[in-house]
Design a protein around this nucleic acid. Sequence first.
RNA 1: CGGGGUGUGGCGCAGUCUGGUAGCGCACCUGCUUUGGGAGCAGGGUGUCGGAGGUUCAAAUCCUCUCACCCCGACCA
Length: 572
Amino acid sequence: MRLTTIPLQTLRENPADAEIPSHRLLVRAGYIQKLASGIYIYSPLMWRVLRKISEIVREEMDRAGAAEFLMPIAQPKDIWEESGRWNRYIADGILFHLEDSKGAEMCLGPTHEEVITTFVKRICNSYKQLPFNLYQIQDKFRDEIRPRFGLMRGREFIMKDAYSFDADEAGLDKSYDAMDQAYHRIFERCGLEFTGVQADPGAIGGSASQEFMVLADQGEDAILISEDGKYAANVEKADSIVSPSPDQGEPKPLRKEHTPNIRTVDELCEFFSMSANQMAKTVLYTAVLEDKEETVAVMMRGDLEINEVKLTNKLDALALNLADEETIKKVTGAEVGFAGPIGLAEDIRVFADVTLKGMTNLLVGCCETDYHCLDVNIGRDFKEPEFVDLREARAGDGAPHDASVKLIGKRGIEVGHIFKLGTKYSEAMDATFLDQNGKRQPFVMGCYGLGISRTAQSAVEQNFDDDGIIWPRPIAPFEVVVAILDSKKSEQVEAAEKIYGDLKSAGVDVCLDDRQMAPGVKFKDLDLLGFPIRVVVGRKVKEGMVEISERRQPDTKHDVAIDGVGEKIASL
RNA sequence: CGGGGUGUGGCGCAGUCUGGUAGCGCACCUGCUUUGGGAGCAGGGUGUCGGAGGUUCAAAUCCUCUCACCCCGACCA
């Protein structure tokens, strides 16, 4: 491709609305342009990047035995009611939905479990047809509550989604492992630094899931990795080992103390000269359930935090919010800051984190303004709550497999997520096959998502410098650019054309920068665009020489004879 | 949805408080010069000042409503 054949406009200044480097650079270099919040136009060069990533994905999916196909973007409401997800997606506010001219409700597909299950149940009736794995690469639509950072969190984005169908759990395990391996190969081939982490399945559902994270300081996800590398998990999902609180001995008699205007754990620590791990704070949440709203109380050791994802899962809630002031006053009969398990309204379910189990002589709130209770004992002073793991793991905690190994906090960008769905959708949608014994069985499903457009931007987030983008070679729009420095000099044009032609016929992924601009401008522009290898055809062409350099090492330049360009590039 | 902020040529911004000819830089077009790290000179085009209503002799500027976008939280590939 000749760069003069495409409209190309780079910006000298940073766009005002871009916060992170990858977003700024992609906009500045003209790769993407915003059409609406979270909705972007991909320029010809960007589309080449996306196609290259897609091609790597296709090769690895095909290698893993999956088959490509295509499902519709527009989906009818009824299949979403069958799976039971319409209400949840509406409640989460992420579904783009619309009515057709007859008043029938539809949505733009945020994901395709419903469609694939519908497809498969009509055409697959026998175990003999199993297993298989189908995938597509297509635009997805999610009306994100807050689109952000360019392609990182778009409302329309390109995704590869795959769905495996097996006869049993053992088959699913195999399908899942194959995808796990394929994903590792894909991100390796894209030239990304990434890690697989345990994850919470969230709204998609299912038993197990793993996320693939591109490590980046600006990543939206917090992840925890053990020092020995044996454990890695999203904070939402992570388990850890924390040191137990000091033993407070045999239960002592309950005391109530006046604590005027002392509300927070920190204030209580100071007031009583106690450490936070001898207290239990009580936090009230309002959960939106399928059929109602419910206020629940959660007790957590004072020095630890509640993991709201774990709580949401425990309650099977559609949404979860901290209770508002009015609700708190109603169920505790006290001002905010004095909630506790004692004196709480009868109908409130109380959950306690497992770290509280067996602790004695606790400090808790007692639902009375300006008072707290000491030497409180679970089961004696209030009804034994349900013990659940609701704690958020932190950097510095012990790893689940070995308390002496610490967890380290990092940030990442979720570029892939694979799930063991099991029979959640096949049962809900009555998708079954006949097994060897002629018995109906629900399909055992897996689903495997990979953000193509997000992966592209993640690559930039990991590969840039002060001058611009440094594309990893496998996904660069072109691996090599041949730049004519002064397009008015015929000897430069002729030499560049020859080199370009030769490289192209040798199968090199090359473009010709035949744009007419001052040399300094051209250098800056090419740095910004980020082609991995640059061949400059300049004044040395009179001696039969051109200059080759790698974008990653701007100071290392090689003078090469015109005939030796192909060879030199192959050696880089 | 809650909190904070911004809308003025393609991009980045000033002007708004205190109403009175719509400006600057970059980009773009023409010509000449220049040509190895964001060139120089000369000339040129570009705006319903986000939208609607109102106040006023007069509105980018004041008032009301509205829309869009960005940032902080819940959501996700």
